[in-house]
Amino acid sequence: MTTVDIAFLLNGRPVSLSVEPRLLLSDALRHHLGMTSTHVGCEQGVCGVCTILLDGAPARSCLMLAVMADGRSVTTAEGLSDPLAEQLRDSFQEHHALQCGFCTPAMLLTAHCLLSAHPEAGESQIREALSGNLCRCTGYQFIIDAVSSLTERGGEGDASHG
């Protein structure tokens, strides 16, 4: 078994490990690095629960080999610690935006990424951004509410949704 040495920034801290090339980033994060907020559902890019931020942009960790993270920066929900992240967590709780919580880490990461770049985001933009994250419990509306309430519009809706 040949392994490849890789090093990357995980939630701002340098990590290095030796991996088989066929190890998925999702499995590396969960089984080798203890980042169990990275969930695994479909392993074909559809459900979105494995979403991480790669150099600040959302990516499916089940569709990346761990070797592809070499030299990059990876953020998991464990690494979301700024004031916006705190607000998102509180808002999810207030709005009942989770039930089982399986989809929640990836929802938080995606919402965080959207709101950092677009604090003015309207509801249609929030829906578009989160459309790649499936939730089996909430029916989505509470998640949209939780994220909308943190925008500059404060959930007052936007043009395309009356």
């Binding site: 890019g45 790669l54 499916r60 569709l63 951004a129 459309s131 790649g132």
Partner: peptide, 9 residues
Amino acid sequence: IGHWAIRSR
């Protein structure tokens, strides 16, 4: 095309 996370890769 796909979703945000798909498009970014």
